Amino acid sequence: MREIELRNLAGEILTKLGAPSVSILLPYLKSNDFDVRKFACDILGLIADEGIVSYVTPLLSDHDKNVQLSAVETLGNLRAESALDALIMVYENFDEIKPAVIESIGKIGGDNSESYLLEQLDNESDIFLQTTIIDALSFNAKSIDISYKLLAKMPRSNIEMQKIMLMTAFAISFRLEEKLLMPDDLRYVSHQGLLEEDENIMVASLISLGNVYRIEDIKPLIGVISKEQSDINQQIMYNLTVNSSVNEITYFFESFFILEDITDTQIDIIDYLPLFWNEIPIENKEAIIDALLINFEFTGSRRILNLFEGLQTQDKDLIETRLFQYSTETSQENKILIDEFLKNN
């Protein structure tokens, strides 16, 4: 125990000394004691002096796996591009440390590293290694191109890997602050991702649909709304009502209000409408009002009238015109409610 404490203390001191420690540590890379070789390699990796690459690289073939692993990690920390070929050789010959090698290649970055990792993404069938490769690709991505390359590989992957690729591609896009467009033929992956319990995948899938929804997006989006996450639901309602077309709006409300066991919290989505009512195109407003009145026809819900009362302060003429027209076509019971509403407001 005492020996471990002393070694840790020595490691801290040598790391803080930085460059002056390098010449002290280098001879210990050739020690007969594998623990000493590993200790020296670990500390040199923390100091991050590129001049040690040629001294550390031979340890990639060390007979002790812990020393070998330390060399892999150190070369990754040093971003040692000159050691890339040697790391690839280790990857192709030592299965047990493949994840560590992938991580180091990702840290090194550059076109050669990226090309190799993309190649291995096709070659590997193990989902853990595939995920590790995707993480490594995202670590150093400096161009949106890597996101498009991941999307291009999705059709050849299983659905679980597709969702991970989608999440990573859009995470890179977000980090680089560059727009990424989801290909039309891959929107089904976004729909699957919306059903995920993993919030990162779900949010990335939502972002991948863009700001304009299509008919085929509606039912998966209703599934998201059912999870009752207010910020996400508000964004969905904004994109639906402000940016999408009448067809999508009509289909949404038709599908939403017939849900079994619909909760009051889920119905709260209509309360977002006043927040951006003035941004909604007139034809979309009319479609929304008509959809709400259809619901009112079957439920007589006072809540619908309360919403109209709020919207009336922003769009009095439109609300009154549509309600008056509706009152001439509905049941006597609903007509009384509408007439009373118009009289009082």
Rank of each mutant, 00 (worst) to 15 (best):
W277R: 05
I225L: 14
N306T: 12
V90G: 04
F170W: 08
S173R: 03
N123L: 15
A291F: 09
L137W: 04
E199R: 14
L118H: 08
N32R: 15
T131L: 14
K38H: 12
L221P: 08
S147R: 08
I201K: 08
L26V: 15
Q235G: 02
E248V: 05
I258S: 10
G109Y: 08
R322T: 06
L87W: 01
Y213V: 12
L195T: 08
L9N: 06
P274Q: 10
L209Y: 03
T328P: 02
D317P: 00
L44H: 02
V189D: 03
I102D: 04
S104L: 02
L180A: 06
M165W: 05
T299G: 08
I319H: 01
S138Y: 07
E3S: 07
C41A: 03
E320W: 01
D111W: 01
K343R: 13
N66Y: 12
Y272R: 02
E286L: 10
N77W: 05
I108R: 00
D198W: 07
E279A: 08
L121R: 06
I236L: 12
A86N: 11
L240E: 03
N140G: 15
F276D: 13
D231I: 14
S301A: 12
S208A: 15
E50T: 07
S31P: 11
Y238I: 02
E119V: 09
A86V: 09
I319P: 03
A48S: 15
T168Y: 07
L221H: 05
S61Y: 03
E114P: 02
N140H: 14
P183C: 05
P183T: 09
M182D: 00
E329H: 02
I4K: 11
D290H: 15
D145W: 00
E297Y: 10
A152T: 02
M1G: 14
N334V: 01
E96T: 13
E12A: 12
I159G: 06
L129C: 13
V224G: 12
A141P: 15
Q192M: 07
G45K: 05
R156H: 14
T299A: 10
A169Y: 02
R214W: 06
L337Y: 07
L78V: 11
F128Y: 13
L194N: 01
C41V: 01
Y91E: 01
Y116M: 11
T265E: 11
D268V: 06
T131K: 13
M154W: 05
A169L: 00
I215C: 04
I249T: 05
G109H: 07
L17V: 14
E197V: 11
D49G: 00
V101S: 09
G76L: 03
I159F: 02
I232S: 11
G106C: 04
V67R: 00
R322N: 07
S327Y: 01
A169D: 01
D49K: 03
R2T: 12
